[in-house]
Amino acid sequence: MLIKDVADKLTKWLETELEESGAKSFIVGLSGGIDSAVVAALCKRVRPNDTYGIIMPCYSNPQDAKDAQLLEDALGINVKTVVLDEVFDVLLSKITDECYEDNITNLTFANIKPRLRMTTLYFYAAKYHGLVVGTSNKTELTVGYFTKYGDGGCDLLPLANLVKEDVFELAKILGVPEPIINKPPSAGLWSGQDDEKEMGITYRELDDYLKTGQAEPRVKKIVDELNRKSEHKRRLPPKPPKF
């Protein structure tokens, strides 16, 4: 299927989901990365005046917020910025005596950030009677490269059936600014974080495996193990049988 047809079908799907839900707007967390930019652009097609992009820096690279802000000028998306540094500090001071500076790359600490962002997005969803639109793609979902009840907390996942390569193609036809398309993929949980280095494989290797089912043993082992370990992220909490 041509990528333009994919864009049109996703636009129609988002429109149908919004109408059936009775909601009036879309709420998207803008990270400055390509996935959130593509999702925001798709939502903008459906609700030009009721798509809200929320930028939520939390001890983040300042460049990420600047890149996210590009969408306001390029696509005309309503953008709001909520700085979560102080909120993060206060929460951390209540739950631990450990210093954040000594634990910057510790996921126990870093995953607080996307969970604060999820809370913020649902505030705006309630305020604007909207749906929170998630930004994870098939590649990330397969290996669990998202935070449970953080960026994994959403109402819709329009990119769930698209690998990373498809997202890049969508970005080009949706008018996503070049600086966003060209930047190295990163979850942005700490300065210098790199998706591919953290996973141990490239997105190309991962995409090829998902599309063909074939991969060299090293890639297959990494993907299969990440998929197994992250299974709990992709399902609702288990319930006991009726007694």
Rank of each mutant, 00 (worst) to 15 (best):
R47W: 11
A68Y: 12
E15D: 14
P114K: 04
T202M: 12
C99D: 13
S36C: 04
K183Q: 07
I27P: 02
P185K: 12
C43A: 06
L141Q: 00
C58P: 10
V132I: 09
K44S: 06
S60N: 03
G33L: 11
Q69D: 14
I173R: 00
D85P: 01
A215I: 04
D50C: 04
A65H: 01
R228G: 02
I173P: 00
V163L: 03
V132S: 06
K138W: 00
I180W: 01
C154D: 02
Y149H: 12
K24G: 02
A37T: 04
K164W: 13
I222L: 13
P114V: 06
D224W: 02
C154R: 07
P158G: 06
P237D: 06
V82Q: 11
V87P: 04
I34G: 05
C154N: 10
I104R: 15
T105F: 04
N137G: 04
L162D: 02
F123V: 14
R115M: 11
P238D: 08
L2C: 02
R234P: 08
N61Q: 09
D35Q: 04
E20I: 02
G200N: 13
M199V: 14
A68M: 10
E231A: 09
I104W: 08
G152Q: 02
K24A: 06
G134L: 03
Y203C: 13
N111V: 06
Y52F: 15
N182Q: 15
A23D: 05
Y100W: 12
I222A: 09
G22C: 04
G53K: 08
P57S: 11
A65D: 03
D5W: 01
Y149F: 13
L2G: 03
V163P: 02
L107G: 00
D166Q: 03
Q193R: 13
F146E: 01
R115E: 08
N103C: 09
V223T: 09
K12M: 07
G200I: 12
A37N: 01
T142M: 12
H129L: 12
S191M: 11
N137Y: 02
D102W: 02
M56V: 08
P177A: 05
T96P: 00
Y128G: 01
K138M: 03
V83M: 08
V87D: 09
P237R: 07
N103I: 13
K220S: 11
E86D: 14
G29I: 00
A7Q: 01
I77Y: 12
K229C: 06
Y100G: 00
V46D: 07
K9E: 15
I104N: 09
S230N: 10
P177Q: 01
K127Q: 12
K24E: 13
E98G: 14
N137C: 03
I181H: 02
G192I: 05
A68W: 10
I34Y: 06
P48C: 06
N61V: 06
I54Q: 08
P184Q: 12
A41F: 03
D194H: 15
F109H: 05
I112G: 07
W190N: 11
L42S: 04
L42R: 01
D194R: 15
S36G: 07
G130V: 07
Y149M: 07
T212V: 09
V167L: 06
A23L: 07
D208W: 04
